[in-house]
C-alpha cells in the first residue's frame, strides 16, 4: 500500500446554500483502507459534508475527487461506493431482501438465485439472516440500519459512507456494528467514512478524523482521536473527546 493515492481528496471545499455557508475552504484527504470519521457539534454540517462527498450536492467552490473516478457524479451509472443513510432509508414497499438485492439486479447480469445467495450472505454478515422476506416496517431501528449497511455492501464497493451508524442503538448493538465496521475494514480492506457522535465507536474503530466547527465554519482539528483528546489546541475539541469527564465536573454537556 506504499505511495497509494488517497481514496478521497477534498480541496478548498465551500459548502452551503446561497445565504448560509456551513464550511469554508475545507481540505482533507482520506487514505485507502482507513476508517475515517467526520466529527463535530450539531449543525456544523457533518451529514451535509457526506452529501457532498457522495455527489448529492455540488460544491459551491472547491473540488472533491474520489480515487479512480474524480468528482463524484451519481448520474454516470453504477456508483463506486455504498451509502447508509441516517434513517436507513430502506424502500418501504420492498422486502429487506429486495432492498439489498436492488443494486445487484440493476448492475449485474446474475440470475435470481445467485442474487439471492449474495443477499443472504450480506444479510448474514450484518447479523440479519432470515429477514429476507420481512418488510422494513417490521424491523427495529437497529435492524434497519444493519439492513441498510447490507444494501450499501451489495455491490462490493471499496468505499462506504455511514451516516451515524450507531446513533440511537443500545450499547450491545452499537458494539456489534463497530465490530462489523472493523471486520469490513480488516477483511475487505474497505475504506469507511463515518459521521458519528458516539465516543465509544470513535475510540474503538476510527483511525483518523476531522472535527468541523460551526462558528468558524472550518475544520479545527484533524488526526487520531486519542491524540486529539489529549493534545488538541482547541478546548471544544478536547471537551468533545472528554465528554464524560466534563459531564462529571459541571454536569452540563452543552
Amino acid at each position: 500500500m506504499s505511495a497509494a493515492k488517497p481514496a478521497i481528496t477534498v480541496q478548498n471545499l465551500t459548502m452551503g446554500w446561497d445565504d448560509r455557508i456551513l464550511q469554508k475552504d475545507a481540505s482533507f484527504e482520506v487514505q485507502k483502507s482507513e476508517v475515517f470519521a467526520i466529527l463535530g457539534g450539531s449543525g456544523c454540517g457533518k451529514s451535509t459534508l457526506l452529501r457532498y462527498l457522495i455527489g448529492l450536492e455540488k460544491p459551491m467552490e472547491g473540488d472533491i475527487a474520489i480515487e479512480g473516478i474524480g468528482a463524484p457524479d451519481l448520474a454516470v451509472g453504477r456508483p463506486p461506493f455504498g451509502v447508509m443513510f441516517q434513517s436507513g432509508a430502506l424502500f418501504g414497499s420492498m422486502t429487506v431482501g429486495q432492498n439489498v438485492g436492488l443494486g445487484l439486479r440493476q448492475w449485474t447480469d446474475l440470475p435470481d438465485d445467485a442474487v439471492e445467495a449474495i443477499v443472504s450472505g450480506k444479510l448474514a454478515l450484518v447479523g440479519l439472516q432470515g429477514t429476507e422476506d420481512k418488510l422494513p416496517a417490521e424491523l427495529s431501528g437497529g435492524m434497519k440500519k444493519r439492513a441498510a449497511i447490507a444494501r450499501a455492501l451489495a455491490l462490493e464497493p471499496g468505499l462506504i459512507f455511514l451516516d451515524e451508524p450507531s446513533a440511537g442503538l443500545d450499547p450491545v448493538s452499537s458494539a456489534g456494528l463497530d465490530e462489523l465496521i472493523l471486520t469490513l475494514n480488516r477483511v475487505h480492506g474497505m475504506t469507511i467514512i463515518l459521521v458519528t457522535h458516539e465516543l465509544e465507536s470513535i475510540y474503538s474503530v476510527v483511525g483518523q478524523c476531522i472535527y468541523l466547527d460551526k462558528e468558524s465554519q472550518s475544520i479545527i482539528a484533524r488526526g487520531a482521536p486519542r491524540e486529539l483528546q489529549e493534545h488538541s489546541e482547541h478546548e471544544k475539541v478536547r471537551d468533545f473527546f472528554n465528554r464524560r469527564a466534563r459531564q462529571q465536573n459541571d454536569g452540563d454537556e452543552k
Partner: peptide, 22 residues
C-alpha cells in the same frame, strides 16, 4: 490468508439458521 478470511466470514455467517420460509 486474505481469501480464507473472507470465505470463512461468509461461511460462518450463512451457516447460522435461516428464517422459516413463508
Amino acid at each position: 490468508e486474505g481469501v480464507r478470511e473472507i470465505v470463512s466470514l461468509y461461511e460462518s455467517a450463512t451457516s447460522k439458521k435461516p428464517g422459516e420460509p413463508k
